[in-house]
Design a binder for these strands. Sequence first.
DNA 1: CCAAGTATACCGCCTAGTGAATATACAAGC
DNA 2: GCTTGTATATTCACTAGGCGGTATACTTGG
Lengths: 195, 195
Amino acid sequence: MPEASSPTRKRIVDAATKLFYAEGIGRVSVDAIAEKAGLTKRTLYYHFKSKDDLIAAYLDARDQPNLKQMAGWFDAAEGGADRKVEAIFTNLARVARHPKWKGCGFLRTAAELASMPGHPAVKAGSRHKTNFEKWLAAELSARGVTAPHMLAREIVLLMDGAFSSMLIHHNPDYIGAAGHAAATLVRARTSSHQV
Amino acid sequence: MPEASSPTRKRIVDAATKLFYAEGIGRVSVDAIAEKAGLTKRTLYYHFKSKDDLIAAYLDARDQPNLKQMAGWFDAAEGGADRKVEAIFTNLARVARHPKWKGCGFLRTAAELASMPGHPAVKAGSRHKTNFEKWLAAELSARGVTAPHMLAREIVLLMDGAFSSMLIHHNPDYIGAAGHAAATLVRARTSSHQV
DNA sequence: CCAAGTATACCGCCTAGTGAATATACAAGC
DNA sequence: GCTTGTATATTCACTAGGCGGTATACTTGG
């Protein structure tokens, strides 16, 4: 029985993360992940009981780093809640220009696993998106915005729409439009500076 | 050289449509499509030069039917532009409850093919989404809404976000929230009945 | 000595794509 | 009216390789 904190396990997840995100889970073989991690497939199967398990571990490992990145962009932005929300989209549009950017790994995995609704990786994605929505609602609530939960959900919808549109059109303007719409929604629910 | 209007070709695309949408393009083999269409793989390869070609044909064939469905929901709804836009989301939430619903085929295919940005199927998806956005902008413009193109894009972003959120959470409330937000955006740009 | 971890080699199955032969339809030659 | 020629359309059998997963044996640190 392998340890959950094993450094070998971490190496496997790191290799899986790079390959799964770059190619998609269906296009990456377990052999390729083992080779990238510098070990054999048998060792990989000692640490994970199946490929499906490894996919779920990949997304679980991305939850906190992704949230931290979003929170970092939000915190670093100057101005009110509207400006901070828009800053997330502005930063997203910037990183999405990089050729290695391939959309949101959580959404892409859910799309690939649409025929397996109970798959642990889909659940991990759902948890992450819920965590983000809750974090955003709390930030908005702390800034005195009205109906913060509904607003957070609308912003999440715009963001997931931006991820999808960018992936299909390869045009960052869609992320900009989403950010603009999100900022407008925030301002409409901000008592000071009402627009 | 096969005919573009061949009934056999249509049978192949119909079989591919059902399987690709239900399982995802990577999880469906060419053998399975040939069997579903009631012919041999060699015949399929007589009508399509590769699986990639067939994937693109599948999405191209979905463009007009999908647009017609959206337009049908829009036209059938009573009330102003806001009610008609919200009706699209309401109908979407209804069909999304069906167990066979697996999200938007265009977005799911783009997600699966994220590592092949120039793939003809991704381009077909981009064309379809653009067609929908243009149709919606024209309908909004005809109803005297201000900034119809920007509004159409915002609604498209909410809709693609709704597709994605529904796929990852399996919760139709997200589609309802998107429809509500879309209707609010329309009302904010409608001169009569300003809210 | 023992158990955790790693390596080699393999299994059975599925994959996209192909070579060669064949069936069907229809037109031209006589 | 039959035969031959030709293009379209279809089938069977096959290749070469990749896939997830595993049986077995070895190494190494406590």
